[in-house]
Design a protein around this nucleic acid. Sequence first.
DNA 1: CAGTTGACGGAATTTGAAAAATCGTCATAT
DNA 2: ATATGACGATTTTTCAAATTCCGTCAACTG
Lengths: 237, 237
Amino acid sequence: MSTSADRLRDPRQRAERAARILDVAADLLLRHGYRRVTMDDVAAGAGIGKGTVYLHWKTREQLFSAVFAREVLSAMDELRQALRQDPQACLLHHFARVYFLAIVNRPLLRGFLLEDPEVLGKLAGSPGTARDDRHGVMARDYLALLAEHGLLRDGMEVDEIGYAFQATFEGFLRAEGAAPAGGREERADLLAGTVRRAFESEATISDATLRDVAAATVTLIGDLLDADRTESGLPEA
Amino acid sequence: MSTSADRLRDPRQRAERAARILDVAADLLLRHGYRRVTMDDVAAGAGIGKGTVYLHWKTREQLFSAVFAREVLSAMDELRQALRQDPQACLLHHFARVYFLAIVNRPLLRGFLLEDPEVLGKLAGSPGTARDDRHGVMARDYLALLAEHGLLRDGMEVDEIGYAFQATFEGFLRAEGAAPAGGREERADLLAGTVRRAFESEATISDATLRDVAAATVTLIGDLLDADRTESGLPEA
DNA sequence: CAGTTGACGGAATTTGAAAAATCGTCATAT
DNA sequence: ATATGACGATTTTTCAAATTCCGTCAACTG
């Protein structure tokens, strides 16, 4: 039999263990809230010693940041998947719809973006700054891409559209906090309609160009995913 | 000389004193935050005894609620004034612009709507329920009025527009919390443009009808102001 | 006597120090 | 080489004493 000593020299098993830890941490986080989940709980839940958890993340805060980071990654991946499957998804209003649902259907992200302090703990302000910046740049690149192809309204600066879009999007996200559990798809449609009429041009676009834009957007998201993964130490998908 | 004994049997002087108390309370609230302002501070600031403050409001919470109520009233009055001066202001996007500025230019309302707990104190959740309901009804009536005159987009229920409009409006409001101090007018324009394209019809309307709608809206707001004033015990304007 | 006041009792909040819990390390174990 | 849990240090919680503050009301004023 393989000696247990070198079991985890294998990066594969190491990643699997990291994933298990994150699973446990995410579960406890949702059920008890940030403040009440201890490193001992997480270690016990994962069936390993506490020291082993610290072989993966240097601090408690980094562990929980990684939980959120993985959730963000997963949402972005869903977005990318949607884009690959249907090039139409690169149109801003479809994009908004898919992204909205990707967020509100993930309880941790809902808690994060509604700034639920019970779920968030001290992860509120400081962290993710690097990532947030990157995502901001990505959003601008994406909008610039749409603008280049005449997919955005004329007579508005890209920055203006960016500001207004973000305000609108986050408005619908926050409204979701007070809204009933059901009817999410309908509210996503409402957001999509609002975004389409407010920010998109009425010009139609050839299927070929649409595919190009979608592909470029996939690349944009891919780069972002790579950067995020590199930073947060979650090697593979 | 008039005996000072019956000085304040006069409702006029009574109202003036109430206003002075509210002025002091508002000032202290902005400078020190809800938690740190005591009834003794307010009384001292107004140059009267604490007992006298309690002749106007039964509890501390009611006093500070009245501070906010007066601010809301003032914003609504500004809105009504704008409508009287320019009937165009009844169009949803102008309405949004004026209302947005009326709120963000009032520090107390900014603090209230951005849910700044420093400013809000325990006035967060519970109170204003009656008023909030009334304002909700008013908003629906206003939108129904616009819909009747073909001033809203076709193909959407009034409730849908109401939901989407509120989400958008509050999104811009919240974005204002993170935005720099300057450029408020520009951001108000951005909101107006967004609302116009998303929720208004392109149909033009006769000046006469516009005046009618504006007048009806003025009435709507007037009723609301009366109801609010009656409830919060602030008799005159 | 209508109108006002500030001292007062009780409730709520703050303070501070001791007790408990948790973090992150590291010597030991495999 | 890898994993662990006992351990010191730090943070959080607890709890009671001390303080602050709310709301009342007997006394006061003109």
